[in-house]
Amino acid sequence: MENKRIIFSEALERVRHDILAMSSLVEEGLGKALSALQNNDKELAKTVREGDAVVNTMQLTIEDAAVILIATQQPVARDLREIFTILKITVNLERAGDHAVHLAKTAIKLSGKASFRAMGRLERMVKTGQQMIRACISAYLKQDAEAARQAAAMDDIIDGEHKKLSEEMLRLMKKRPELLKKALRFLHTSGDLERMGDHITNICEAIIYMIESRHEELNE
């Protein structure tokens, strides 16, 4: 009779399901924060923090489950690599969630409408970040290293927008010093979203390690 390690496999499946749920919450938080920023909706911005508290709790719950699996099931080889990947996914998703909170804080602090062009760039960064999260978690669940590489490649879009937005804000600060504070806020927010892209790239690297057992530096 073939032994499929049912107890371990079922526990792992539950953890995978929790990771999908956690990633959906981070994605949702980013969407809400963007919407709050675009519509100057401070109430919506406040709900992002509440969602992030749930994300933080999920991180701990998933990590506890992973530690229990190591202690009780003694995984080795690919199973062990998956547990380490799970720990990397949760820590990086949690950081991505923090960036959604930073974006929401910007929405709360920003008075008046932001420039159309800057807002357009932030929107593209956030939406690309959401797509990256969806694509990398899908790559994890399908065990698809190539899909993880493709997900990480989207980070170029975020980096490109960040670079352009930074240049525009620097020009704006020189040209209109009275807008310095607002421009700085946009600059910080853009920097946050750029780092969020790096966190998702870290997840993609962990997925490749899990599948191929080698360390691959993406987006160097």
Partner: peptide
């Protein structure tokens, strides 16, 4: 951590019998 043969992986992972 990274066995070369699938049968080794199955055995050490407890998925063999």
């Amino acid at each position: 951590t990274n066995p070369e043969d699938k049968r080794t992986e199955d055995y050490i992972s407890g998925r063999f019998g």
